[in-house]
Each structure stands twice: as structure tokens, then as C-alpha cells.
Design a protein around this nucleic acid. Structure first.
Lengths: 344, 344
DNA sequence: GCGGTTAATGTAAACGTTTACACGGTGTGG
DNA sequence: CCACACCGTGTAAACGTTTACATTAACCGC
């Protein structure tokens, strides 16, 4: 493994000159440049980043913490971040934390250890105040999830407003018995979506029915969506629409509804959230609230590099969402508000 | 940012002692240990990995190159790798190469630059001989895909045998008009699955029908599976079974078959490959050839660490696959071998 | 032709570790 | 009581860069 001194020796110059040539500083003669570059090629020299990072005190690496890779929602965000980092000459290294706070903090400690210049978090699994302290020491961006009073730079959609949009769609279709299939976690997005649901009901002068709010598992699993929906449909007055806070939950709801003998969307409307790619592959295609996943990633990366380079960037980046109406939602069944409704 | 000398000064010992305490070497008095650890805590000292890596000439980092994050097949493998690396005290950093050879090589160059100890490749997007050269210099493991004559350590299932298993299932169900929905790439797995299909046909004394072999896009997209299936079903004598080399393609085939008025599995059987999680979420649930994805990841990581630690590990690791029979395959429709069959 | 500016290169000191070697002190066996 | 071993600790030299500063040479205007 050739070092910079080998190159210098072979080219007949000092190591300082080699370093200058390689870092593209202008103060070098074309002749020396050529000599150096030739030696580099002949010796197959490659920079030792450990040494370089140590000296310069930066790494050209950003860390992305993702709770889970299986969720296609995260996949798009990760792609957006990766593309942006590559374009800006940095490497984006993804750490799968598996929703384990220990693994999250271990990954973040790498910042303290000078192994990365900054990090993007796709979830909140670390203690909020610990994280805030951390963010005051290091460039940190939160994507999708952030505490309402957060002092950490963040990028997300307006979940409450998005929730209102879903509800507007269902209300417009004449639904009044609308359930909310949430998740058993304390993510801010989960709270906001519930809040939007409740506000929209209130604004429509519909009495909230506590039994209509159910929860799937913390990670939005398909099976839990199915179970929760069965509970919902076994109610004396089952809902005519289910607003699910994730597409996976909605897919579970679809299967459960079918099992219970309901037709979608004739007997019951089901909406998802996020708009992951599979939504178009299943039948019926899901009506869902689309998040601009790739752009969330791009914006997060840009914000992080701004922080790293000590440029200014807003504390909050709010991106646009939009409702995608497909086949799983339709007019409320006639007379649904009168009797207990539902098929069978 | 406190350094080791700050800690040494505060504890009243030399930096060598601090280093020894922190690296857990036994030759230290409990008293000194305590002094050092207290100083570390008081100063909030953290190791500078750049310096440590430079000196030790290793990083405690492995790189995972994945062509694409959206595919849940990769997600499981990545999780297996990550868990194993964590258990063994290393960090697994995932690079999304997006099937771009430039990004792959750039990532691999990080090995030369002493920024990682080894790498696991989930695809072949770099030139094969270049890769072989690389593997002779650095710890490298290929997972899922590898050249038949590869000299690089690899972990995968036996794709040809797996293909035979799928065919045995379909043949046993009485199918004789079996199509193969492949992908427009040159991956070794794609070749092997086709070869297994052709061998099985030959062994069953069924004349291969060239029109029955069609290809979806290189990345197994849902839409391309749908298109290819429509072509297949428009044939004068459409197949009664379609053996798809990926689940996404199979999902496309399902939708296309339905659109063309075929019932699954009464009129046509459709099988997938990989067994990604969504298979249970769609209807009909897909019969598929399950790969042990998580174990592929675990085994790859173990093999890589063996290489890094100069332990011996086999060149080829072949893991077991198994067929999962669900709802999308059934007996061939009666008289299918006589007339043109299919509904409509 | 000379002081002064500038441009190209060299010298050497960092950056924060790890570790070979040296050193002193204590304990043990003869 | 001495030689010896051993244990805990310190000293200092690496590891491969980058960069402030020094040096040299060339060039310019007067």
C-alpha cells in the first residue's frame, strides 16, 4: 500500500506538493502536476482516509438512521438522501437501527468519534432531550418524525393537515361512521393524524365514537391491521369507512373486510397513508395520502449539508402531500347512518 | 472535545495507561482503572476513531452494497447482515448503489482508502474481472449473485435446483403448458432459473415452446410482469401455469391474468420466487420458492468476518430453499393439453 | 541592477491514537 | 541478601495526512 511519501519520492518532489496536487490546489506547475499524477498511477496510490480525516477533522460521510428497511416508505426516502449525498460528493451510509435505542445511540456516537460529519434520523427512538443535546453539538436532521416543540432541524409533511384531507374526502363521499386505524406507538405523526381525524369529525359535527379508534402494532404490521379491523367490523354499528394511518395497515384492513363479507368499496371504504409502491399492485388499488418520499430525502440531505457547512437552513421544512384517490373508497352505502349497515 | 491526553492529565497517569484501560487490557490496577474511568466520564471523553483507525489500520466497519432498497428481498438480507455485524461488534454501513457501476466502485474504493474492513455485495454490477482482482486484495463476499466460476467467496441458494422444485410442483399438478416469466438482465440467478426450467421440461419429455419464455424488466418490475403476461395469455395456446422468477413479476402476472378473464388458480397457476412479505397480503396468496433471506445475510456477514480475521471459510456457501405452496397454484384445468384452454 | 513582490516548492509540526520498549518496584527462590 | 522475574506504568515513536511557515527563484518596475 503506497503512501504519499512513496509518491513524493518517485516523483522527486516533497509530500506537501503531492498533497497539493491531489487536493487540486492551483499553485502547482503543470510539469510537477504531471510527474505527481504519473507516480500516483504507477504506484496505484490511494488516499488513506483515516489519516486525512484525522488531520482535516472531517470525513465526507453522513449517517442515515433508519428503524427498518422492510418498509418501502423508508426506501424512497433513503434513495433521495443517497442521490443527494452522492451529487454533493459525500457518502451516505445507512444504519439499520431496528427501532433499538441502543443501536441508534451507538450509531450517533460515531459522530462524536469523528467517523461521520452529520446524521439524518428517520425515526424517534432515542430520548428526546438526549437528542436535543446531541443536535446542539452535531449536525442533525430529523426526517418524517419530530417532536412538536423540536429545536432540531426537521423535514416532514403536515400530518394534521393531511389527515384533514383524508377526512374531507371521506366526508364528501357521505361517510359519517368513520373509524381511525392507528398504531400502537407514540410517534408524533401518529398523534397528529389522530388529532386531524378528531378535529375533522368535530368540524363536521359528528359525535366521536371511542370504539371507532383502534390501534395496530407499533410498526404498522399487516397482521395487526387485520386484527384491529375485525374488532371494528364486529361492532354493532360497524363503520362505513376506515381511515388507516399506513398502507400496510390498510392492506390488512382490506383483507379483514373481505373475510368479514364486506365489499370494498361498496360496503366499506378504506384509505391508506404514505402511498408505497405496492398500492398499485393490489386489488382494489388503495386510496391513500401520498407523501413526497423521495423529496423528503432530498430536502433532508440538503438541510444536513447546510448545517455541516454552517449555512443557514430553516428549522422546519414542510413538504406538500396529496390525496390519491383510487379504488378503495366510494360513496357511503345508502342508509348507512340509519341502521347498523354492512354486508352479510 | 477532550482527547486522551486530557484524560491522562486529569487522572494523573500517562496516555499509554489510559489507552490500555480503555482497550480493556488486563495489566492495570483497579485503582488506576477507576481514576481513568472517572476522568473519562468527567471530561465526556470519546475515542477519535480516525486516529485509532489510522494507528491500528482497521476500522470496525463493513460496507454493504445494495442495488436498490425498495425490494423487500434485499431488506431481509440487510437485516441479517446488520444483526450479525452488531453482534460481532462491527458497524454495517449500507450503500445504495442504485445499480450504478460508478457508485459501486466508488463504494468499494473506500476499502482501499482504509475506511472499511470489508464489503458484502448484493449484486453484480461491477466488471467481473475487476471484482476478482479486488477480492484478492480485500475481504469481499457476494450474496445471492455470483459468477459460476467465481473465485470470490459467495453465499446463495442453488437456483437451478430451486427451479427444479418449482417445476416438480407444477408438473405434479398436471401442468404441461408451463411458461417462464424471466427478467431482462444477465444475473446468474436469472440464467440458472431458466436453465432449471428447461432441464425440468426436458426431463418430463415436454417439448419446449419458445413463446412460453418471456421477460419482464431487468429490475423485476410489477408493470413489466403484467405486460409480459398479457403477451403470454394472448397466445393461441396460452400456458396453464406461469413460473415467475420473482414475486413482483408474479404479482404483475396475477393482475394481468385477472384482467384477461382468467381465474387463479382454477384457469391458470402462477408461482413466484423469493417469498417477500407482501405475498401473504395479497389475494390469492402466492405459491412461491422461499429463499432464506435473513440467513443469507447472517451467513454472508459471518463469512466476511472470517475473511477479515484471516480464518478459513468455504468459497461457496449454499443455503436451503423451500417451496411454499399457497393459493395461486392448483391442478391444471381438465383437458388443458387438448385444446387452447383458458377462460373467455 | 536592485529592493520588493509573487509564485512554486520544501520543511516540519501538528492531528489523536496504539504499542514496542524501557524502567522501577515488589516479590520470590536459592 | 542477591539475582531474577514479573507486573504496572511511562516514554516516545510510529501511523499518513494537511498546512502554516520558511525558502528559493523568478520577475517586475524603477
Amino acid at each position: 500500500m503506497a503512501t504519499i511519501s512513496d509518491v513524493a519520492a518517485r516523483a522527486g518532489v516533497s509530500i506537501a506538493t503531492v498533497s497539493r496536487v491531489l487536493s487540486g490546489q492551483p499553485c502547482t506547475t503543470p510539469a510537477t502536476r504531471d510527474k505527481v499524477l504519473r507516480s500516483v498511477a504507477e504506484l496505484n496510490y490511494h488516499l488513506n482516509r483515516s489519516a486525512s480525516n484525522l488531520r482535516r477533522n472531517q470525513t465526507g460521510v453522513i449517517l442515515i438512521l433508519t428503524p427498518n428497511m422492510t418498509n418501502p416508505y423508508y426506501a424512497s426516502i433513503l434513495t433521495g438522501i443517497g442521490d443527494t449525498a452522492t451529487a454533493l460528493g459525500s457518502a451516505a451510509f445507512i444504519c439499520n437501527t431496528r427501532d433499538d435505542p441502543n443501536r441508534s445511540t451507538a450509531a450517533l456516537e460515531r459522530l462524536r468519534q469523528h467517523q461521520a460529519d452529520g446524521a439524518i434520523l428517520l425515526s424517534i427512538d432515542a430520548d428526546a432531550t438526549w437528542l436535543a443535546d446531541y443536535a446542539s453539538d452535531f449536525p442533525l436532521v430529523q426526517c418524517s418524525e419530530f417532536q412538536p416543540d423540536s429545536t432540531i432541524t426537521h423535514v416532514a409533511i403536515d400530518n394534521k393537515a393531511a389527515s384533514h384531507d383524508v377526512m374531507a374526502h371521506l366526508l364528501e363521499l357521505g361517510h359519517t361512521r368513520i373509524a381511525h386505524l392507528s398504531a400502537d406507538n407514540t410517534y408524533p405523526s401518529t398523534r397528529d393524524r389522530l388529532a386531524g381525524y378528531q378535529e375533522a369529525l368535530a368540524q363536521a359535527n359528528i359525535d366521536p365514537c371511542p370504539e371507532y379508534v383502534v390501534r395496530g402494532s407499533a410498526d404498522y404490521s399487516f397482521a395487526s391491521g387485520k386484527d384491529a379491523t375485525h374488532t371494528l367490523l364486529a361492532l354493532p354499528k360497524p363503520p362505513t369507512a376506515i381511515f388507516c394511518i399506513s398502507d400496510t395497515l390498510a392492506m390488512g384492513a382490506v383483507v379483514a373486510a373481505r373475510e368479514a363479507g364486506f365489499n370494498i368499496p361498496a360496503d366499506i371504504s378504506i384509505t391508506g397513508f404514505d402511498d408505497v409502491a405496492v398500492n398499485e399492485m393490489i386489488q382494489p388499488q388503495l386510496t391513500t395520502l401520498a407523501q413526497p418520499c423521495y423529496e423528503l430525502g432530498v430536502t433532508s440531505a440538503r438541510a444536513l449539508f447546510a448545517l455541516i457547512n454552517h449555512e443557514t437552513t430553516p428549522l422546519a421544512h414542510v413538504l406538500d402531500h396529496h390525496l390519491v384517490v383510487r379504488q378503495s373508497s366510494a360513496k357511503a352505502p345508502a342508509g348507512a347512518s340509519e341502521h347498523s349497515g354492512g354486508a352479510r
